[in-house]
């Protein structure tokens, strides 16, 4: 299958290794991966800030960029939820509504695509570490993904998966919320971080790079030994 990679803007600029790992995994599975260089940001920061008239042109650009792609796959539950759930709402009643619904039906979060669309659980990865999985809220509640990433992780050779208590509670990122209400956001990551540390895991893995930015940023500031890692990075490992 020809897969069009959707790399969120901040992954492109701040954690490119996540995009590289996602491409590697898909390529290894025998698929042709493309990256359409016209893509930038899906518009979610503006959408979440209430600036829907700013988010709308960003969404229309994304429709143009991914026009004709058989499957659009992104390593971010949040950005995929923007395209799949919120584009149709944002563009409702505009001439772009039908195309937004069409793109929504062709867009997948990375772990969802592997498990639900390709029917793959074992991608041949090896990673002999203790990890815990953090559910990004968009993946969990907008895309209803819970078991998919866990199935992929359980199939990784040598990997020990441990659950975090209150696994479904938010890490406190929430996009610009984390900077507009930093004190609340920090209180939330303290709770989440405390639970993650109690698992004794070496790595906290998520399908959402934005949650990892928040959790990793706090763990690093607090000098904790747990490291953030995107699920694509785990699935790309063969060590």
């Amino acid at each position: 299958m020809r897969i069009s990679l959707f790399v969120p803007c901040f992954v492109d600029q701040l954690t490119p290794r996540v995009g590289v790992a996602a491409a590697e995994v898909l390529t290894r599975l025998g698929h042709e991966v493309e990256f359409r260089e016209a893509q930038t940001c899906c518009g979610q920061p503006s959408f979440n800030s209430g600036q829907w008239d700013v988010a709308r042109p960003a969404a229309v650009r994304a429709l143009e960029v991914f026009r004709g792609a058989e499957a659009v796959v992104g390593p971010s539950g949040s950005c995929v939820a923007m395209m799949r759930v919120f584009y149709p709402q944002l563009l409702e009643g505009t001439p772009h509504e039908a195309e937004a619904r069409d793109l929504a039906s062709r867009t997948f979060e990375f772990s969802e695509f592997l498990v639900r669309r390709l029917g793959v659980e074992d991608v041949g990865a090896r990673f002999a570490k203790k990890v815990t999985y953090h559910d990004g809220c968009h993946a969990l509640r907008e895309l209803r993904l819970k078991e998919e990433p866990r199935r992929l992780l359980r199939a990784v050779k040598g990997l020990e998966l441990v659950e975090t208590e209150e696994a479904e509670s938010c890490c406190g990122f929430g996009g610009l919320f984390s900077a507009k209400f930093p004190m609340i956001s920090t209180a939330m990551v303290q709770v989440k971080g405390g639970a993650l540390l109690r698992t004794g895991a070496d790595y906290v893995v998520s399908s959402d790079p934005s949650c990892l930015l928040q959790i990793g940023g706090w763990l690093s500031r607090e000098g904790k030994p747990v490291l953030p890692l995107h699920i694509a990075e785990v699935l790309a490992r063969r060590d």
């Binding site: 790399v7 492109d12 701040l14 954690t15 290794r17 990551v189 930015l213 990793g216 706090w218 690093s220």
Partner: peptide, 12 residues
């Protein structure tokens, strides 16, 4: 309250 990762030299 939080760090930002080191910026990579090359973008995706």
């Amino acid at each position: 309250t939080r760090d930002l990762p080191e910026a990579p030299a090359v973008s995706f």
